[in-house]
Protein backbone atom coordinates (compact mmCIF):
# COMPACT_ATOMS: atom_id res chain seq x y z
CA UNK A 1 0.00 0.00 0.00
CA UNK A 2 1.55 3.28 -1.10
CA UNK A 3 0.84 6.97 -1.02
CA UNK A 4 0.31 8.12 -4.61
CA UNK A 5 -0.14 11.54 -6.21
CA UNK A 6 -2.04 11.44 -9.51
CA UNK A 7 -1.59 14.41 -11.86
CA UNK A 8 -4.03 14.39 -14.77
CA UNK A 9 -5.98 17.31 -16.21
CA UNK A 10 -8.81 15.28 -17.72
CA UNK A 11 -11.23 14.89 -14.81
CA UNK A 12 -12.76 11.68 -16.15
CA UNK A 13 -9.47 9.93 -16.71
CA UNK A 14 -8.24 11.18 -13.34
CA UNK A 15 -11.33 9.77 -11.69
CA UNK A 16 -10.81 6.41 -13.41
CA UNK A 17 -7.16 6.19 -12.37
CA UNK A 18 -7.88 7.25 -8.79
CA UNK A 19 -10.86 4.94 -8.41
CA UNK A 20 -8.70 2.08 -9.63
CA UNK A 21 -5.75 2.89 -7.37
CA UNK A 22 -7.96 3.41 -4.30
CA UNK A 23 -9.56 0.07 -4.99
CA UNK A 24 -6.06 -1.45 -4.84
CA UNK A 25 -5.79 0.04 -1.37
CA UNK A 26 -3.49 2.97 -2.09
CA UNK A 27 -3.78 6.38 -0.53
CA UNK A 28 -4.41 8.71 -3.46
CA UNK A 29 -4.13 12.49 -3.88
CA UNK A 30 -5.56 14.09 -7.01
CA UNK A 31 -4.07 17.00 -8.90
CA UNK A 32 -5.46 18.60 -12.05
CA UNK A 33 -2.16 20.06 -13.26
CA UNK A 34 1.57 19.95 -12.64
CA UNK A 35 1.63 22.92 -10.30
CA UNK A 36 -0.96 21.45 -7.93
CA UNK A 37 0.87 18.13 -8.13
CA UNK A 38 4.18 19.80 -7.25
CA UNK A 39 2.65 21.27 -4.08
CA UNK A 40 1.08 17.93 -3.20
CA UNK A 41 4.33 16.03 -3.65
CA UNK A 42 6.16 18.58 -1.49
CA UNK A 43 3.47 18.42 1.17
CA UNK A 44 2.62 14.71 1.27
CA UNK A 45 5.93 13.18 0.11
CA UNK A 46 4.28 10.30 -1.77
CA UNK A 47 6.19 7.15 -2.67
CA UNK A 48 4.82 7.22 -6.21
CA UNK A 49 3.81 9.91 -8.70
CA UNK A 50 1.52 9.08 -11.62
CA UNK A 51 1.49 11.92 -14.13
CA UNK A 52 0.14 12.88 -17.52
CA UNK A 53 2.44 14.80 -19.89
CA UNK A 54 0.21 17.44 -21.50
CA UNK A 55 -1.40 19.55 -18.74
CA UNK A 56 -2.17 23.25 -18.31
CA UNK A 57 -0.05 25.58 -16.10
CA UNK A 58 2.72 23.07 -15.63
CA UNK A 59 3.10 19.96 -17.78
CA UNK A 60 4.39 16.58 -16.65
CA UNK A 61 7.92 17.10 -17.98
CA UNK A 62 8.26 20.47 -16.20
CA UNK A 63 6.87 18.88 -13.05
CA UNK A 64 9.52 16.14 -13.13
CA UNK A 65 12.22 18.73 -13.82
CA UNK A 66 11.09 20.85 -10.85
CA UNK A 67 11.05 17.80 -8.60
CA UNK A 68 14.54 16.76 -9.70
CA UNK A 69 15.86 20.28 -9.10
CA UNK A 70 14.43 20.26 -5.59
CA UNK A 71 15.78 16.74 -5.11
CA UNK A 72 12.42 15.43 -3.97
CA UNK A 73 11.37 13.09 -6.77
CA UNK A 74 9.20 10.27 -5.47
CA UNK A 75 10.73 6.77 -5.49
CA UNK A 76 8.59 5.65 -8.42
CA UNK A 77 7.28 7.72 -11.33
CA UNK A 78 4.74 6.52 -13.87
CA UNK A 79 4.17 8.76 -16.88
CA UNK A 80 0.85 8.08 -18.62
CA UNK A 81 0.51 9.76 -21.97
CA UNK A 82 -1.43 9.68 -25.20
CA UNK A 83 1.31 11.46 -27.11
CA UNK A 84 2.52 9.79 -30.27
CA UNK A 85 6.15 10.32 -29.24
CA UNK A 86 5.78 8.38 -25.97
CA UNK A 87 8.81 6.25 -26.85
CA UNK A 88 11.04 9.31 -27.23
CA UNK A 89 9.66 10.71 -23.97
CA UNK A 90 10.57 7.40 -22.32
CA UNK A 91 14.12 7.52 -23.67
CA UNK A 92 14.47 11.16 -22.66
CA UNK A 93 13.31 10.54 -19.10
CA UNK A 94 14.89 7.11 -18.63
CA UNK A 95 16.14 6.54 -15.10
CA UNK A 96 15.64 4.32 -12.08
CA UNK A 97 12.02 4.02 -10.97
CA UNK A 98 10.81 5.79 -14.14
CA UNK A 99 8.16 4.16 -16.31
CA UNK A 100 6.25 5.46 -19.32
CA UNK A 101 2.93 3.86 -20.25
CA UNK A 102 1.01 4.86 -23.38
CA UNK A 103 -2.74 5.42 -23.06
CA UNK A 104 -4.98 3.57 -23.08
CA UNK A 105 -3.03 1.85 -20.32
CA UNK A 106 -3.79 -1.58 -18.96
CA UNK A 107 -5.23 -1.09 -15.44
CA UNK A 108 -3.82 -4.47 -14.38
CA UNK A 109 -0.33 -3.55 -15.51
CA UNK A 110 -0.53 -0.14 -13.82
CA UNK A 111 -1.58 -1.83 -10.56
CA UNK A 112 1.26 -4.36 -10.85
CA UNK A 113 3.76 -1.62 -11.56
CA UNK A 114 2.65 0.44 -8.58
CA UNK A 115 2.78 -2.62 -6.32
CA UNK A 116 6.28 -3.32 -7.57
CA UNK A 117 7.44 0.27 -7.09
CA UNK A 118 5.82 0.30 -3.65
CA UNK A 119 7.48 -2.89 -2.46
CA UNK A 120 11.00 -2.14 -3.69
CA UNK A 121 13.50 -1.51 -0.95
CA UNK A 122 13.65 2.19 -0.13
CA UNK A 123 16.78 3.95 -1.28
CA UNK A 124 19.40 4.53 1.35
CA UNK A 125 18.91 7.78 3.10
CA UNK A 126 21.57 10.26 2.11
CA UNK A 127 23.67 11.41 5.02
Amino acid sequence: MSRVVVAEDDAHIRRVICLWLRRQGHEVFEASNGRVALDMVLEHEPRILVTDVNMPLMDGIELLKELTERDCSPHGIVVLTNRWDHREIGEQLAGPGMHVMPKPFSPTRLAELIDQLGSEAPEEAST
Partner: peptide, 18 residues
Amino acid sequence: DSERLAEEVLQNYEQLSL
Protein backbone atom coordinates in the same frame (compact mmCIF):
# COMPACT_ATOMS: atom_id res chain seq x y z
CA ASP B 1 -23.21 6.65 -12.18
CA SER B 2 -19.71 7.96 -12.41
CA GLU B 3 -18.28 4.88 -10.71
CA ARG B 4 -20.13 2.63 -13.10
CA LEU B 5 -18.79 4.59 -16.07
CA ALA B 6 -15.29 4.53 -14.64
CA GLU B 7 -15.63 0.78 -14.18
CA GLU B 8 -16.60 0.38 -17.83
CA VAL B 9 -13.70 2.57 -18.93
CA LEU B 10 -11.31 0.45 -16.88
CA GLN B 11 -12.66 -2.74 -18.46
CA ASN B 12 -12.41 -1.25 -21.95
CA TYR B 13 -8.86 -0.09 -21.29
CA GLU B 14 -7.93 -3.56 -20.12
CA GLN B 15 -9.49 -5.22 -23.15
CA LEU B 16 -7.94 -2.73 -25.56
CA SER B 17 -4.46 -3.20 -24.20
CA LEU B 18 -4.87 -6.99 -24.19
